Computed example of a mutant assay.
Amino acid sequence: MAIGGGVPSLPCLALLLLLVSWNVGLLAIARGLPPCEFPAIYNFGDSNSDTGGISAAFYPMGSPTGETFFHRPEGRASDGRLITDFIAEHLGLPYLSAYLDSLGRSFRHGANFATGGSTIRRQNESFFENGVSPFSLDIQTAHYDQFVARTSYLYKNARAEKFRRSRLPRPEDFSKALYVFDIGQNDLAAGFRKMTNEQLNASMRDIVSQLATAVQHLYQQGARTFWIHNTGPIGCLPITLRYIRNPMPGYLDEIGCVKDQNEMASEFNRQLKGMVMQLRGELPEAALTYVDVYTAKYSLIANSTRAGFERAGKMCCGYEWEDKHVWCGQKASINGSEVVAGSCEDPSIFVSWDGVHYTEAANRWISEHIISGLLSDQPNVPITHACYRL
């Protein structure tokens, strides 16, 4: 279902979801394949899947984040749950605790190494200037190595301390866990700030190669099941579109997104998919699933009204006045008056939470369409059967 061939309508997408899920179900039954029993999830990524890492590392994320589901800030850049949370729910596992947030957390069923602002390649930019996290993907995998070594030692030496053991992962579970990647959007965003499109395009191979290195490293440590998200349509983000005035013909696509930015995201995704296919041949015991999150997000934006999202092109949380923008939850002085950027009355009718991240309602919609296997390439395998090489 290529975007270049036209975006499917919501009814068509729903029909395809039904047919593909039905066919995958028949395939699994015919082969006698029961659902995988994942004891844990280990996630690597950026703010699209960060469940509290960057908040613990720098400063607590404040209101109104988390208001819809958690009813308090829980380190997520949304009003509620993320795709990562819906994946955990679907697999019957607890929400992932952030590795960097150790207070009162249990890591028996996995850990989240993602942090807001993370990139695949290290960036020479400050988190406080441009929101780029120092925890790039190589640092996240180093954190994983430390996590495995430290928890395995503690588990082995806990002995009769049942409470302590109950919060630690079982060493034998690391090879049975699901390893999720959702990262790359910030590499593109940094490229748009610092490079020409030609330079960014030339850097794609190295960016994707470094993600491949992370997968290979985890495989060498015993990981076997990988669920790899591609990057979304960055040219459709409201924070990008708000600065556009009188665009030249052809600058925006048919649904009003920045065309060249989405083309760059599509090129990244093309190379990422090629990398996944190559790794399938190089890692004989690995099951690697490439997940087309781009199509899910673009389809939602293109068909938002029929999906029940009345304010698809606007952000729920934030404040805009003329050429000024105040980020969600922040304060600013405008014309001598203090302004607090609060949230909208009903986040469920918005696709975008804060101009960059998605609302819980949008995350739920996207999750339903990727978890089912409709948009995965392994071939079309649902997440419940991702441990098999089909």
Rank of each mutant, 00 (worst) to 15 (best):
H143K: 01
R105W: 05
L241G: 07
N186G: 07
V351Y: 01
Q199A: 13
I228G: 10
E263L: 12
P64I: 11
R242F: 08
Q330M: 13
P35E: 06
Y153F: 12
Q210P: 03
S63H: 11
T196R: 01
Q220K: 12
I349W: 00
G117K: 02
K324R: 15
C257N: 02
F70H: 10
L168C: 12
T231D: 04
L283S: 01
P347Y: 01
F309R: 00
P34N: 05
A202N: 14
G66M: 04
N157M: 10
R31D: 06
K273R: 15
L93K: 00
I334V: 15
I349L: 00
A386V: 11
L168H: 11
E345Q: 14
Q210M: 14
A30M: 11
G66L: 03
V180F: 06
H229S: 03
F192P: 02
D253W: 00
P169M: 06
I29Y: 08
M1H: 11
P171L: 06
R150W: 07
S203M: 14
I83N: 03
S266P: 00
P249M: 06
L200R: 01
M248F: 07
N130D: 14
G355E: 08
F350K: 02
H357S: 10
N23D: 11
A202Q: 14
G281K: 04
F128W: 08
P73W: 08
L100F: 08
R205M: 10
Y243Q: 09
S299K: 00
G222C: 06
D377I: 09
G52Y: 12
L237I: 14
F174R: 01
P171K: 01
Q278E: 15
R364F: 04
M248I: 09
A30Q: 14
K194N: 15
W365P: 00
R164S: 10
C317W: 04
S348V: 01
A114P: 13
A56I: 01
D50A: 07
I301A: 12
N262E: 08
S203Y: 13
R105N: 14
P238T: 06
L279N: 13
G25V: 11
